[in-house]
Design a protein around this nucleic acid. Structure first.
Lengths: 131, 131, 131, 131
DNA sequence: GTGGTCTAGACCACA
DNA sequence: GTGGTCTAGACCACA
């Protein structure tokens, strides 16, 4: 059972939060290849959000090869294949780094502090993977 | 003279790109305290966008203490002061890190690769500051 | 339902009047945490102003932590958090007092009269909070 | 000799700051009836601002009966007469109090704190009047 | 000339 | 339906 938590007030859309957290759960091996996910309606009810929102999140994960839909049986974690070209991945990576560092700059964090906050989160992933 | 470049079609709003790039220019000391910025309408024309879009970008920078507006004379870089509370800065830092790492995860980057792309950019800043 | 009244011709911008009155309504507990606000376009129509003007007012209230925007659902009163640093709050307080007393001086009010007009309004707040 | 200090960055126009400070100087009896003021050009040079700005400030003070212009000889402090109707003064007073308290509300100051900051400034006036 | 505000109208993403 | 962004064009106060 995946535990997903939605927070309001951030400027992150709900469907994006669902996508992010399912990806995190897989990275942390809380979800493994072949495992099934809650149905669209089930998860929508559990999170008290519109079911279109969950459908949109699942669709995005299917599109990028993280999940696969087995019609009539539900959604399953599948062997991740790379859908994006190397150039596209590079472009998106650079874009994300630029946006992130712009925010850090706005908050006036020194490079050393930026490294620290990143490491703190990365360590969280590593621990999760071992447990 | 600040050189600002806008790309449309991405998901970053134009006014946000202007904000980011002015902050970067100040961090890289291409703009220094007391220096004036291009006029709202001048920059709008140069970037071929509406003046309201530039006004919105400048307004955000005034709000966070990066620029000051001298009525009738223009916008000037000002001595940055700490406008936000420590708690608010922490909150925004955490949120930015979460969003950034979610994106890295989506692109399937390993922790070591994430460190590399961050360091590459941070070194860019350091060089800019020394030159 | 919040009742907002706009006067034009004064030197207070429309969007500022909206901001002020929503803050007052919250202080007077006519609006409470979690409650939703009229939609941007709804309030714009009600006040017979452009929707951008209301959007600007709401954006300011989101920025200072008074409201939160839930994408696709609307604007909600949120638990107020301290966004500004102590130094910034002091700076703004001093500036507001200076401007206010300059105006009182211009109108030739004696210190005792200034205290009276302030107290009259403060009592108004207190009553509103109790009822 | 009046000592006037201009600060940039606030949203108070320069001419307004000049007006405010001349009124304060009179209230604190640093300027008394019949005393002369620096010439428009002299004060403009001293403050390093445009002379139109000073001319505008003086014009406002003449309009409200604080100063009088004796052509060829300069500007003089004169016996203040009340130019505004009682109703107009009340209206402006209320407006100023509303704007001030809205700002205090935005900064989340309690009534007691508002009284304190007001009194601190009023005491400054009282002392000035005695010295 | 400078920035600030406002209208009218459009298009987009999200729920 | 909701808010967010953008354009085009206007008018205002200030220096």
């Amino acid at each position: 059972m995946v535990s997903i938590k939605i927070t309001t007030g951030g400027n992150r859309a709900i469907y994006q939060q669902v996508v992010d957290q399912i990806r995190s759960a897989i990275a942390a091996e809380k979800l493994t290849v072949g495992q099934s996910l809650p149905s669209v309606r089930g998860l929508a009810e559990q999170l008290a959000v519109n079911h279109n929102t969950i459908a949109k999140a699942y669709a995005e994960l299917v599109r990028d090869g993280t999940l696969e839909s087995r019609p009539g049986r539900g959604m399953f974690v599948c062997q991740k294949r790379n859908v994006l070209s190397a150039a596209e991945r590079r472009r998106r990576t650079q874009q994300a780094v630029d946006v992130f560092l712009a925010e850090m700059l706005a908050l006036d964090l020194a490079p050393e502090q930026i490294r620290e906050v990143i490491e703190a989160k990365l360590n969280g992933f590593a621990v999760a993977q071992k447990s």
